[in-house]
Nucleic acid binder design. Structure first.
Lengths: 215, 215, 215, 215
DNA sequence: TATGAATGAGTGTTCATTCAT
DNA sequence: AATGAATGAACACTCATTCAT
């Protein structure tokens, strides 16, 4: 739950005795955490600034010193979530993986990430409740790269002969990303009507393998 | 956009000169249309009753003579949308279809339905912005049947030897329904970042075929 | 509950087969009954026209053919209630009563009237919830006569020597009327915090006797 | 009109330069004053939150930071009014009073209190327009004690032989409280049809004396 | 820097009143 | 004469945002 928002100060030796600066950054991070939680649970319109502030343990007004308004706050949350998500999916060390393994690994890591993170890839994909189109556009930069990453893995597989030669790489990448997003969201939502049992995950992984591998 | 809400009066030759009853039902239908549109665009919390009324060309208050409140209106919209969606997906005449054809047909019909209908299967699946759990539960009755229908087609294919014998029917049905829902929503949303080209559809169809057919 | 609103038609031999006229008057009466009930229970602002119409078994709109608006309807109800109340209090045959008996009789009849009638002398006296001052003024014509009636009885008692010679007739009449109004309202309201047991009534009667009789 | 809501700050020498806390409490008090006024004039249903806010010179929303909703605000007003009323009635120093004097004193103080205070013992007793039963119940705790106080005075008088031995103490207390409430309300309402001249008050006082004293 | 009291525009909802039928 | 569908002003209440402290 306590994500890494501090970045540059992460290794600051003075972190132990937080100065003004540090405390401020800590509060900013707490706000972002709370916002992620609230937006994730209630959507953009449903979440209230007051609740976020309370959840973060800061005053109502402080929020507005870090973020111009609710919309901007949401944009930042969105950007961070996508960044974290992409990070979590990307293979740590790519060397030893075959394309098929890479594909499977991304899928599983994505689902795992969402399982443990109060997140909203739901929102990422196309939540109608957040019509903040401009915001989404801003974070869309992350979506396309993700798709390109998957596409490059697919292309590598095709080139190596491991995947089908007639694979429509762009479309397949799109579909795989879609599935990743879906099942990731389900991992987070944990809705009994949309369960995410191991069996379902294995089936999805097998779907993907079947669809791409050469025969 | 102008859906069939009239049903019983559809063949009434006097429909042209609407009586009071008729006009009333027409207005009700207009409200439902507008609500479908607005909820679809803005989510539950984001949509306003005033906007829906305006869009429907009726007064603010009339809405409350047909529906107890916003929540009930939404519930009705949801129920209707799912009903229409399921109707559109179900094969007209099932006789001559192989299981594979049935599967493909449902997929295509679902996508087509959403392309031409202001709809919200998005909302059906799990929009975090509409926490109206009870409502969702009510319309959830439709989700499981859909999954069962797909599962029965899969089972038929497995039995006939057309599909893989080791197919996890439940999980596969879940995944296929998920894909249908996704691409259907994309068909409606028409978001450039999530396009729905023929190539993408064909790829999805092929994915499904590859995943289930015996080898 | 079914009060006499018809007056002139009460003995109409055609009452059995109600003509247009009769039915109309009957409906008017039903509306007044319902209004008396509703205003009595919920006060002026709290009562709704729709409820009154429903209670009366007529359409919403019909109400407005008999009464210009809610305020006028209320005014008529008020006038009728006061009229009935005063009627009920006035001794049937005055001859054989001493002033003391007359006083006591009025008090008891008033309380009894309210016990069996959905009424609102509450509203009569000075309910702050119905600020319709002008209306109250209109029905005030009835209040003063009542006070004068009591005063005349008191005066008769003073003259005959049965009552104290130094009685302030006007003030005493005022107080007695006040008590009548109070206990009448309590008879109707039937609030456990303001009970109206026989003991309480007897005490009130005795109060009045003690206060006025010569010693 | 400007009641004492400040209590603890009453002796604060800095009250002249109000701090934030002080100003806040002052506004709360202003809201309560305005609410007392408006509810008193228009009843519960008739009074509007907007009017109260305007009368208090604060924004519409501030009201909701002090009181959960209109109903709660009313409950507080009611509680305060009863508290003030009871306070005003209770004899300052009881020592030297005979029971008869105590009775008379309470009556006069009650009337005087209402004359100078925007108040609604009317509402206390049984205004049909405020069906907020639960609220009334809450403040009813004050009614019964008042009745008991009067009853104890009566009992003392009976015991000392100053009052009639056959007095029904409970019923008499009820009646006296009723009269106090009535004339107090009249003192506030100041309705020309229900005047409250000195003569009327003296008559009431005499009524009470006559009714209770031994002969 | 941080607070939270204060604002007021905007929301869902009700209801007296009108009017086409 | 009678209906009840339709209206829209008015209400209680919420919440993003500001600002004096």
């Amino acid at each position: 739950m306590n994500l890494d928002h501090s970045e540059s100060t992460a290794e600051d030796p003075q972190a132990a005795l937080p100065g003004r600066q540090d405390q401020s950054q800590q509060r900013r991070a707490r706000i972002l955490d709370a916002a992620r939680e609230c937006f994730g649970q209630d959507g953009y319109a449903g979440a209230t600034v007051a609740r976020i502030a309370q959840e973060a343990g800061v005053s109502n007004g402080l929020l507005y010193q870090f973020f111009r308004n609710k919309e901007r706050l949401f944009a930042v949350v969105l950007k961070d979530v996508v960044r974290d998500w992409v990070r979590a999916m990307v293979p740590r060390s790519r060397e030893s993986e075959t394309p098929a393994q890479a594909l499977e690994g991304m899928f599983r890591r994505s689902v795992d990430f969402c399982r443990s993170t109060p997140l909203l890839p739901a929102l990422l994909s196309r939540d109608p409740a957040l019509q903040l189109q401009r915001i989404q556009m801003a974070s869309a930069d992350r979506i396309e790269p993700h798709r390109r990453l998957v596409a490059s893995i697919l292309q590598a597989g095709v080139t190596s002969g491991e995947f089908r030669g007639d694979l429509d790489v762009r479309s397949a990448a799109d579909l795989i990303c879609q599935l990743q997003s879906d099942y990731s969201r389900r991992a987070y939502a944990d809705d009994p009507r949309f369960p995410l049992t191991p069996a379902i995950i294995e089936t999805a992984v097998r779907f993907i393998h079947d669809a791409v591998r050469a025969r």
